Simulated scan of single mutants.
Amino acid sequence: MAEAETGAKATGGRSAQLERTGLRHGWTTGACATAATTAAYTALLNGEFPDPVTIELPKGQRPAFALAAEELAADHAIAAVVKDAGDDPDVTHGALVRATVRALPPGSGVVFRAGPGVGTVTRPGLPLPVGEPAINPVPRQMMRDHIAAVAARHGGTGDVEIEISVDHGEEIARSTWNPRLGILGGLSILGTTGIVVPYSCSAWIDSIRRGVDVARAAGRRHVAGCTGSTSEKVAVAVHGLPQDALLDMGDFAGAVLKYLRRHPVDRLTVAGGFAKLSKLAAGHLDLHSARSQVDKGFLAALARRAGADEKLAEAVATANTGLETVQLCSARGVPLGDLVAAAARDTALGVLRGAPVAVDVICIDRAGTVVGRAEPRGPRER
């Protein structure tokens, strides 16, 4: 789909980025909401919608956005932009972001409302108070700045109500962290730079951080970082943890550990598939298959340390999969799963750098059977 059809055209910088990587940057929901807000307020003051509408992002870039819808009435104006996430696999790509702007009495300031498809904060721990629309601080400031600039150009007071909505946002939000974080009713309006960097995974990492914040605000002292839904179910079964203590870690073990280093809880359970956690055991913090591989030589060395003979160690080193290595060892009474869990725990404690967090590890196979455990150990027990 062409850029014009998805609602945004860049000015400067984006073509160079495309040449360097072959991947297009996109625009955050916060940038789209700011563009729609700017267009709507301009029309409310002078009767004309700028199309395309140009905004300035926090780092100075000036993208232009085509309008997908517009409506002007006596007391309000509506403009909409289709989100273009570039080449990032973003669930909000193609979403229609609408801004409805209404004038308020002088001195009212800028008031934000959640329209259909935008969530409301219902739990503490997020960067917004409970009851507020899930429009994050940076997008709010972007919209305030652009409202002020439009008011200065066209003689307005800058006192407005901004209602942001996203078509089908409540349905899309089911594929995000929002329900677990206590953001109900739809999506969050996000973005710190306004730009979506393809495969940067910044949104996932930010969700991990917000998950820790919500757990801490709820008084949870034990959280679990899980690589997927199966390991999450195992962590719940083993430890009885509530939903708001579960962190969808995915491949980003380092993101969980580094954030807990600065914002500790009493205990972290790391739960995941054996192959992924063998990478953590070997010192990798990004567990994605494109960025780290199962080191069967490392696993063979662990097996030798536990008493495996050379024939078994060679079978481990040449196995087809990580899971096959643990099966080979289990059949010979060598607890490779436990050794991997213990080594993964040691890596985690090293990243935590003495933060007061005890760590335990659970390794599972694809069916959810536990194949390795390491009991909790704190920073002074290493």
Results as ranks from 00 to 15, higher is better:
P264K: 10
S207H: 01
H222N: 01
R210S: 14
F252Y: 13
K311V: 14
C329K: 07
Q243D: 09
A301Q: 10
A308R: 01
L302P: 02
P242T: 08
R305Q: 13
S202K: 06
L299C: 04
V265D: 00
D338Y: 00
V214R: 05
V256I: 10
A301E: 15
G283I: 08
F298M: 03
P242C: 07
R332D: 03
Y259C: 12
S278W: 07
G272T: 01
D266A: 02
S229K: 13
V197Y: 15
T318P: 11
I208Y: 05
S231G: 05
A290R: 11
L260Q: 09
L312S: 05
D244T: 02
D309F: 13
V294D: 11
A331Q: 14
E232W: 03
A306V: 09
A224T: 10
K258G: 06
R220D: 08
R262S: 14
L285T: 03
S202L: 12
L277T: 09
V234D: 02
E232M: 11
A271P: 11
L339N: 07
G297Y: 06
K296Y: 06
R291T: 02
V223Q: 04
P198Q: 13
V256Y: 00
Y199S: 05
V238G: 09
L336W: 01
T318S: 15
I195T: 11
I195E: 06
F252S: 02
L312N: 02
S202A: 14
A331Y: 00
V214I: 07
V270A: 04
L246V: 07
H222V: 01
L260G: 04
R332H: 14
V265S: 06
G333D: 13
G272K: 10
V316N: 05
M249G: 00
Q293T: 15
D309L: 14
G283H: 04
G219P: 10
D338T: 01
K279Q: 14
R267N: 03
K276E: 09
H239I: 07
L241V: 06
Y199N: 13
L287F: 03
D251R: 08
L241T: 03
T321C: 04
L241S: 07
R221S: 01
V265G: 02
F252A: 07
L247H: 02
S202H: 03
C201K: 10
G333M: 10
V256G: 01
T321K: 04
D295N: 15
V212M: 00
R262V: 11
L260Y: 01
R332K: 14
S202C: 11
A281W: 11
T269Q: 11
S289K: 05
K296M: 06
D295W: 12
